[in-house]
Design a protein around this nucleic acid. Sequence first.
DNA 1: ATGGCGGTGTAGCACCGA
Length: 254
Amino acid sequence: MKLATWNVNSLKVRLPQVLQWLAENPVDVLCLQETKLTDDKFPVAEIEAAGYQVAFTGQKTYNGVAILSRHPMTEVVKGNPHFEDEQQRLIAASIDGMRVICAYVPNGQALDSDKYGYKLRWLEGLRHWLAEELAAHDKLAILGDYNIAPEDRDVHDPAAWEGNVLVSPPERAAFRQLQDMNLKDAFRLFEQPDKLFSWWDYRQMAFRRNMGLRIDHILLSAPLATRCSACVIDKVPRKWEQPSDHTPVVATLD
DNA sequence: ATGGCGGTGTAGCACCGA
């Protein structure tokens, strides 16, 4: 069983790449963020033709999340029942005995921005909902763009990023609080090469210079972490023409 | 210190992302 997450930065633009990636990497579940599509424009037929069922919730221009699955999905929930939010950033489904949650955590923009407060409140709301979901589902995976680099080793140049969103102590504390709920960062269950990231700015040839951050994560509850045999970042799609600025992260469960 | 790039909307640029 393979679970993956990918912030595609517009599914309209990236659909061919998603289909190509799935053809080469036929994962069981793929969580997408930043689809940027209203539900009436979601490419259901193309994704079903590739062998996947799909659940999605979107809006115009911003946000939007989806779960693609080779196996039946039930109990689909859109949004956080405990956090009123017009922004479409969460979707959950039960798949093959697991609870799978796809999350697009707010960016926060800047530490002095209202959006930063929204980000921290959003994460607090997520925590409360997750506590409930974990009580109901011992096998839970939450995949997505967390917009948090958990540690300095997840940042190409920690000094340059100090004082910025994605690395601030309150955001990192929020990430640790998720880990304190016995959710394991799948990537860190294994020895990994240094300086392996999941996002690189489009500007300044950041990808070529590996000026990136690891902000896309797969968190697994203990019964799933025990079964996890690998977690890799697939940099290949970031090298394609007209790429997303994020690249997929994949966890293998035995 | 700022903007760099890319996507979107409805436009001739402004906004947002990270």
